[in-house]
Design a protein around this nucleic acid. Structure first.
Lengths: 132, 132
DNA sequence: GCGTTTTTGACAATCATTATCGTTACCACG
DNA sequence: CGTGGTAACGATAATGATTGTCAAAAACGC
């Protein structure tokens, strides 16, 4: 119950999920990742995959995207705050940073008296390879 | 089958949904709107509400938001392109425009060779009334 | 090792959304 | 003003990702 004494334990399952994310490129759904772990012979429950991903997301170690279509997608990204430029056709993703956008969002929110500000931003397009 | 001969028909149900959206402030879910229509005595099926909302969204007449929590929220907004500043606690929404953000997004996408660019942006915060 | 506490995982439950498909109502045309 | 073709409706079932449950297993401090 102590809020500072979280003390997450090191488990085989958590390592497996984390390791897998380290090797993967692009975004993948929880169900995807679960299937991959199974193929490798790692025995991890689907519930645990969800829990682990949520934990990592809360900790800021991975990014979550909610594309139209309803499935949550997860990816290990560079640590800092950034956004994604995603190809509609093939899903290829580029990380983009926009300091001006960040400060703009914060400023707009503060002007309206909103506190504790966060935001989400995704850019969609068709990548060069898919345009042809 | 002719692509230009769409010819949407005027139905009582479509008018009811559209009218309701015209009176409402803020975002509401499809199920919400359906319940309100029922309370008014309008007899509209849930399926139809979903279909109508999707149609209006495709036509660009209403905005869709997908907040964490899984429910799609719809709202009639001003016509032009804009974004939303939403209160996490009470849902109060402010429309905000950011020309600089639009052009930044387009520029970033083009730099990476992405075509046919669009984007989504939501700002979340706690509004003045809920901060206290 | 030992006990405590977290974590796991199979399964059921949830719930918004979508598909189905017979019925109804719109509307253009005669 | 009737009528035929077709789009729209709507009750219900299906879908499918995510979350809740809870007994059993594993991890960590000592």
């Amino acid at each position: 119950m102590s809020e500072s004494g979280a003390a997450l334990r090191n488990t085989r399952q958590r390592s497996a999920v984390s390791a897998l994310l380290g090797e993967m490129e692009g975004f993948h759904s929880a169900q995807d990742l679960h299937a991959m772990l199974r193929q490798r012979g790692e025995r991890v429950g689907l519930t645990t995959v969800y829990r682990t991903l949520q934990g990592l997301a809360d900790a800021g170690e991975i990014d979550v995207m909610r594309p139209p279509g309803g499935e949550h997608l997860y990816r290990r990204c560079s640590q800092g705050h950034h956004h994604h430029l995603v190809c509609r056709a093939c899903g290829r993703t580029v990380e983009v940073a926009g300091p001006a956008v960040e400060s703009w969002a914060d400023r707009v929110a503060e002007q309206h008296g909103y506190a504790d500000v966060s935001h989400t931003l995704e850019i969609f397009g068709t990548c060069p390879a898919c345009v042809r």
